[in-house]
Write a protein that binds this DNA or RNA. Structure first.
Length: 838
DNA sequence: TGTTCCGTGTTTTTT
DNA sequence: ACACGGAACA
């Protein structure tokens, strides 16, 4: 037994209680800034110090970045172990853990171990194709709605069949059909989506007793972070894994649950003690992060939520400054105030740029901000996941890698078969795909056999052969990067599983843990389903492809093998580099600015790959693709010295900054309201919005600034705004109000910084009574306001739902009793005012 | 087959 | 205001 002095150093009694609780379920209700991460890492170290094998410890975090940091911190604590033993601790996100395990147990899950993981744009494409195949117009069922329905269903562990069984109305029947087609396409492509990772793992654990037993014994001590954001599938995974040893430690904070919209179930954490009987509960309520003022304000905000466990955060930290609240006339001015505040912190308070963050509800708010930060010469970085990987050239390069890894990946195939242009148009492409489907060989093999495909022009056929041959060249040069199963280019075909395939078949009741189902009964139920599945799984692992070379040997097409591999690159970077050269994705001849930008991006991509190889010397292509696909926004947040961080409130979870500025504190933006028609926006939705604001505020250590604009341009329309109700919920003695709105500036004057003085208004400054929807917002210059009753000569009586002030082009959205909602240009519509609608 | 232009929808939040 | 997809044109 190792010395635990270090491990328990500087911990509070409550934290020690959590850290030293070894066996049995444990719930740590950790308030914002209460040292949760620290408690978890120490706990892992403690477990190891009392002799638990690192190999038996599993820690699940919310983001890859959090996982990386935790791995690092645990490593630093486990000095009493060898580095090899240290590496034994599994630290992963749910998604990456599931991906890894599903590859390991692929045959039992009815998968090929080199399956691809679709990103969201792939999902949209697949959804569209599924709708097409089911002859459902995208108008009747928008792809986004289909995807959201599929996602919700999968979170409940229901596939197309169960969905159809549970939903019989007209719209749902369409969804069910498209859902089935979507699943079929994914099967053909040997692909899974994000939800599948969780769903398939949950089902595998549920239905396969052998796999379950094996994993239960591997992960004897489980720690789940951010438990308030787990969904049903994740709950099942936790539950199944912990069923035998009961050693599950969940940490989280119900007040920070902000992912309800994507299926997170707050009940998981609220009912933890019912789900895991005899659970010990530890509350961490001392906050080490924020000033008294910030904490008091955040607490005052969150108590307005009805559905919550009462909890009182306290801190020994200093009182700190009041929270600045600044409302500007419009979003441009708001952005300039933000820049000004940041500059002031840097110049006068000697704060570093990387100690400051600007948070917003929706990504689109960052645009104006960027302009003003650039103008003010303030360095910034935007944490936006899609930015790098959504670029065309990166997506293309990625698609090449995906296809190399998984030659059945149709989405990738379609993306790049003619990029760069090689004379294979949509028509030729369809022929190749059909041929592949008819003969059951994969897409790359089909290309290799292009001369046998009817309807292909000679030119297209030989281009296809060259394409396949190039892929084969890459494969043969990097055998060690392509896992065993990907070996012969294209041996990987989705094996049609027998009809008795358990996925989606077993009608296994979702366990009602709240009723405290006896564990043995649960267990027995699973075992039954599992044995069937195990039998099936055994069959489908047989490989029908002998693994003979997929490429055509007769008359290998002219291959441009003159490009030598870049010898200085290793591993993934070398493969990527070779690939880019062979397929001419880097065109050095073009010299225009855009091309330079693209080449730079691709070189950056090679750097990413090189970094992967450095960290995973034996990493395979499939592992690499997985990492790239599963990265989230925050994962790419670099510790860039000297730049202000811009990100969404969601992305800010778990982070902290000395200065936080939250922008867009307006009704409709924060809290966000989806549409005019959604009347009962109260309740659950509103409470989640409030939690989001709470998360944002509690990111701040020293200073907090809240801003808003009283008119904002959205989609080309100027909309007038009112103060956020959340601002009104803050105690008056915690805030100071700055009303920049009334400052008059000469239009276009260059030095607004010199002209504009802030005038702290009376601390009562917040116009409490002026913020409800019925009050006249100071910026509402038009004569129409929400709620007014009007009469139109043609449409009759209606109520104003919204009003966009835009000069002669001002529009009103009016809900007419007889003809429904219409948007009218006020200047032309002869509207008669009936009353003020107060 | 490839490129350009126009019209339309689009903005919540993400693994 | 912007990006994407379809249609028309080269």
């Amino acid at each position: 037994m190792a010395d635990t002095t270090d491990i328990l150093a500087d911990l509070t009694p409550e934290q020690i209680e959590a850290v030293t609780h070894v066996d049995g379920p444990l719930l740590v209700l950790a308030g914002a800034g209460s040292g949760k991460t620290r408690t978890i890492t120490r706990r892992v170290a403690y477990l190891a110090s009392v002799g638990i094998a690192p190999f038996n410890i599993l820690a699940v975090t919310f983001t890859n970045k959090a996982a990386g940091e935790m791995r690092q911190r645990i490593g630093e604590l486990l000095t009493f172990l060898s580095s090899r033993q240290r590496a034994g601790v599994t630290v992963a996100t749910f998604h990456s853990l599931c991906a890894r395990l599903l590859r390991e147990f692929a045959s039992f899950a009815g998968l090929d171990s080199n399956f691809s993981i679709m990103d969201s744009s792939d999902q949209t494409k697949t959804a569209k194709l599924a709708l097409e195949r089911s002859s459902i117009s995208a108008e009747l069922l928008p792809p986004a709605r289909l995807l959201s329905a599929i996602s919700k269903s999968k979170n409940r562990l229901q596939l197309a069949e169960q969905f159809a069984a549970h939903n019989t109305d007209f719209s749902s029947r369409n969804i069910a059909r498209a859902f089935a087609a979507y699943e079929q396409i994914m099967k053909e492509n040997n692909t899974v989506d994000f939800d599948d990772l969780l769903l398939r793992m949950a089902m595998l654990l549920r239905d396969n007793a052998d796999v379950r037993a094996q994993l239960q014994d591997r992960f004897q001590y489980i720690l789940i972070d951010e438990y308030q954001d787990t969904n049903h599938a994740q709950f099942i995974i936790c539950h199944m894994l912990a069923l035998k040893h009961h050693n599950i430690c969940a940490t989280g904070d119900p007040d920070q649950s902000i992912y309800g919209w994507r299926g997170a179930n707050l009940g998981n954490i609220l009912d933890f003690e019912q789900h895991f009987p005899n659970a010990k509960v530890v509350r961490l309520e001392q906050n080490y992060r924020s000033t008294k003022t910030i904490l008091k304000a955040a607490s005052a905000l969150i108590v307005n939520n009805i559905q919550r466990k009462n909890k009182s955060l306290w801190t020994d930290n200093e009182q700190g400054d009041r929270i600045k609240i600044i409302y500007a006339a419009d979003e441009r001015e708001e952005a300039r105030h933000v820049a000004r505040q940041l500059r002031e912190m840097f110049d006068q308070h000697k704060m570093r740029w990387d100690e400051m963050a600007v948070l917003y509800r929706i990504n689109s708010l960052s645009r104006v901000l960027e302009d003003s930060l650039m103008e003010a010469a303030i360095p910034y970085q935007i944490v936006r996941g899609t930015e790098f990987y959504a670029r065309k050239e990166i997506k293309d390069a990625l698609a090449y890698l995906r296809l190399l890894n998984n030659p059945s990946d149709r989405v990738s195939f379609e993306r790049i078969i003619n990029v760069p242009a090689r004379g294979i148009g949509p028509g030729s492409m369809d022929h190749i795909i059909s041929y592949s489907q008819e003969t059951g060989i994969n897409l790359v093999q089909a290309c290799a056999q292009a001369h046998q495909i009817e309807g292909l022009t000679k030119k297209a056929a030989s281009a296809a052969k060259v394409f396949a041959h190039h892929l084969e060249t890459c494969r043969s040069e990097f055998p060690h990067l392509l896992g065993r199963s990907a070996a012969p280019a294209g041996a990987a075909i989705w094996h049609e599983t027998p009809a008795s395939d358990s996925l989606g078949e077993t009608d296994w009741p979702v366990p009602d843990f709240a009723n405290d189902v006896h564990e043995d009964r649960l267990f027995a139920a699973h075992s039954r389903g599992a044995s069937d599945d195990a039998a099936v799984a055994g069959n489908i692992s047989a490989d029908e492809h002998g693994g003979s070379a997929g490429t055509d040997t007769e008359g290998p097409p002219e291959v441009d093998a003159s490009i030598p591999p870049n010898k200085s690159l290793r591993g993934m970077a070398a493969l990527l580099d070779r690939m880019l050269r062979i397929f001419k994705l880097i065109d050095h001849d073009k010299r225009d600015a855009e091309e330079v930008e693209r080449v730079n991006n691709l070189l950056e991509f090679i750097n990413v790959a090189a970094e992967f190889t450095t960290q995973n010397p034996t990493g395979t292509l499939s592992e690499y693709l997985e990492q790239v696909t599963l990265v989230s926004d925050v994962d790419k947040l670099k510790d860039e010295r000297g730049s202000v961080t811009l990100m969404t409130l969601h992305a800010a979870k778990g982070l902290e900054f000395p200065l936080v500025i939250m922008i867009g504190l307006e009704e409709g933006t924060l809290p966000m309201s989806r549409s005019f028609s959604k009347a009962n926006h109260d309740d659950a939705d509103m409470e989640e919005e409030r939690r989001l604001a709470f998360v944002g505020m509690t990111r701040a250590k020293k200073r907090l600034i809240l801003t808003g604009a009283l008119s904002r341009m959205t989609r080309g329309f100027t909309e007038s705004r009112t103060h956020s109700r959340f601002v009104c919920e803050l105690p008056k003695d915690c805030i100071e109000m700055f009303d920049a709105f009334r400052q008059v500036r000469p239009a276009g004057s260059p030095g607004y910084r010199d002209n504009v003085q802030y005038h702290p208004k009376r601390p009562r400054g917040l116009p409490m009574e002026n913020t409800s929807a019925s009050a006249t917002p100071p910026s509402s210059t038009g004569k129409f306001r929400r709620g007014m009753l009007v009469r139109h000569p043609l449409f009759g009586v209606g109520r104003v739902e919204d009003y966009f002030e835009n000069g002669d082009n001002s529009r009103a959205v009016i809900d007419f009793r007889k003809v429904g909602r219409k948007t009218l240009v006020v200047a032309f519509a002869r509207l008669e005012l009936l009353d003020g609608g107060s």
